[in-house]
Design a protein around this nucleic acid. Structure first.
Lengths: 218, 218
DNA sequence: ACTAGGAATACTGAATACAGAACCGCAAGC
DNA sequence: GCTTGCGGTTCTGTATTCAGTATTCCTAGT
């Protein structure tokens, strides 16, 4: 078996992302490097390297002389992210060969109905949604685009994880997924893109509506 | 005057980008940290921090145990970047209020004709093009999108800087800029988006065609 | 002569140590 | 009473040091 040998900073990065997603840290909170490093069980160096990586991804802010802080959640940014992901994933669809997409469409439809029948916990929703979009992007040959999508999606996920208040959304997401899958099967790329856009923008709106008094700043 | 106090890693990052753009380093070249740190005049730590930041931006690769290396230039990636930028900037236009864009359109048209009349050196082309796109994005309220565009543009610029072989392209770029500006003035957003896409994709193709035996790998 | 093995070297990755800047509190002066 | 200057403390930002690992070169054996 290929034993995993990843750089420490990568593991720290994942740990930080996990903490941000689970709400173990409060958005906007300042970071004490020695303390956090001790908690995680590494020294300051790999922690700082992970922080810097996350900073360039937009998940963490820093100010010279004041150190790092977990990025605050703003309704504004959340709304900004939706059209960006939508556009990027739409482009990914457009760049994918149509026959491939039609094949994938079948799998996507199946996944969408699975999704529907499931009484889903929060974590499960996220995992399923990830899986679904992962399949959808499977035929896109543009590596760079996929990398971009991954990072933007991660930012978006943080909001979802912390704000999504109930499971009522599942059926609706499933419906939207099904719609997209249907378009893809038919080879109707513009239709799929439109459905995708609706999916994302509606998703963001929905979440914002339902977000009870929370971490949101503006 | 507000005296500049930037983190050292930011300055190092800029220096590295400058070296990559001017061709002072060869793409794909491995990086000796102590040597490079000495050259730049800082210690290894801020250099590594800059390297990690650039790595998450996709400008530098790293492999555990083998250290960092300047990202290789591939025709494939270059072609991949064009539609991404095109989609992102197109989205930015769409998100900008139409009246604002019409106002900006006038300035853009003026800049485009300036561009045309100028016998431009390479550096000047880049600066002008940057300026032009900067103005075009001036009315977009989506901060996150703008940040994304900036990083992707930087990747693209590296290719342009190293591959653009002659100045014949100027007039053509100017023509395309003018076309976009015209659409914007008319409030014809779809037209502008299409012109933009043509601008980017043609730009990439053009550069690739003319790139004499160079750093490109695949 | 060519290959395999091992030692030496060089470089990365991580930890620690140090210097310097930014906040907090308190006291003194206006 | 409010402001302003000073001192201490805490934390960041940078340098230095250490350990672990990959690579290379040399030697010995087939």
């Amino acid at each position: 078996m290929p034993i995993e040998r990843r750089a420490l900073r990568e593991q720290v990065r994942d740990e930080l992302l996990a903490r941000m997603r689970t709400g173990a840290v409060t958005p906007g909170e300042g970071i004490n490097e020695v303390q956090l490093a001790a908690e995680i069980g590494v020294s300051r160096t790999p922690l700082r390297e992970a922080l810097i990586a996350l900073e360039t991804e937009g998940q963490i802010d820093s100010e010279s002389g004041k150190g790092f802080r977990f990025a605050a959640l703003s309704a504004r940014e959340f709304e900004e992210l939706a059209p960006v992901i939508s556009a990027l994933e739409g482009l990914a669809i457009e760049l994918s060969p149509v026959p491939e997409m039609q094949k994938l469409g079948v799998r996507l439809a199946a996944l969408a109905s699975d999704f529907d029948s499931e009484s889903a916990a929060h974590a499960m929703i996220m995992t399923r949604d990830d899986e679904w979009h992962g399949v959808m992007l499977g035929a896109c040959p543009n590596e760079r685009l996929l990398a971009l999508i991954a990072t933007v999606r991660q930012s978006f996920h943080r909001y979802e994880s912390l704000l999504v208040p109930d499971e009522a959304i599942v059926s609706r997401v499933a419906a939207e997924h099904a719609a997209i899958a249907r378009c893809l099967i038919d080879g109707d790329i513009p239709g799929a893109r439109e459905a995708l856009e609706v999916n994302w923008v509606n998703g963001a709106k929905r979440i914002l509506m339902q977000s009870s008094s929370s971490y949101l700043t503006d």
